[in-house]
Computed example of a mutant assay.
Amino acid sequence: MTTTPLSQMLREETARAHASAEGSDFMTRLMAGELSAEALATFTGQLWFIYEALERAVRSVADTRIVGAVADPRLERRDALELDLAEMYGPQWRDEVRILPATARYVARLESLDTPGSEPRVVAHHYVRYLGDISGGQVIAARLGALYGIDPDALNFYNFAAIGKIPPYRSAYREALDELALSDAQRAALIAEAQAAFTCNSAVFAELAKLYPGAA
């Protein structure tokens, strides 16, 4: 059995893919204020499709030993995203938001996790999305609000006040990962799926960059 802590393996094995997604052209320009409120709204819509699928996948196996170790309803983002989209588009937001091809592929991958034995892969997606989300959410919300004139009521996605202080929560999450009793094959599957999750994110960012190629 591998003795390296799982959280360490995940961090090391996904470092390159993580950096690629985080430093994507779309996100770099979005955080630099070079895009528009429309671009942010389109991005938020893609997140809704992703989290709706992810949270269905997590809930379907939340009572299992593996997924139950990290599943936490306080992390769920779907409802927050729906509030944000209602602010951005109005009550008819479901008629306005359109899924991009890369997002559809991401969602299809998440929907494929309903097969027996897929729990480590579900944890991989849970880790990639939520552990990244809770880091700096309030700072990101404040920056986006200032850059694009977005009301805080449209930035609920970034508010993780329900889980309390972030550093201890993040540490506890990593400890829960490290305490999972997984075979080497399960660990390998989890890490490979985490890498795939970052690749899915990068593909969504690439399509958004093509959709919004220039400054606002």
Rank of each mutant, 00 (worst) to 15 (best):
H125C: 12
G136E: 07
F26R: 05
M1Y: 06
H126F: 15
W48N: 02
V128Y: 00
H18K: 09
R56I: 12
G132E: 02
D72Q: 07
E207M: 10
E87W: 15
E13Y: 05
A203E: 14
S7Q: 06
A215L: 10
S20H: 08
I150R: 06
K165T: 11
A172T: 05
T44V: 06
P167S: 00
L100D: 05
A185E: 15
A57T: 03
E34C: 03
E119P: 01
K210Y: 02
A142H: 11
A161K: 11
A216F: 08
L180P: 05
R16I: 11
A39G: 06
T28G: 00
L83G: 11
G68H: 02
Y158H: 12
R143P: 00
I191P: 03
L81W: 04
R29Y: 09
G117A: 04
Y212C: 01
A71H: 11
S202Q: 15
A181E: 15
I50Q: 10
N159Q: 02
M1T: 12
V70G: 01
I191R: 12
D84G: 06
C200N: 15
F49D: 02
H126N: 06
Y212A: 00
P152F: 04
V139F: 14
M1Q: 12
L147Y: 06
A215H: 11
L100W: 06
Q92N: 09
T115V: 15
S135E: 10
V58L: 07
I99A: 13
Y148K: 03
T42H: 12
G23S: 10
D84A: 05
A162P: 00
P91V: 10
V123D: 01
H126E: 08
L180Q: 02
A181M: 09
L110C: 05
G149P: 07
D63H: 13
V204A: 11
P120D: 10
S60C: 02
T42S: 11
P91A: 14
P152M: 09
F49E: 01
M88A: 13
V58R: 04
P167C: 03
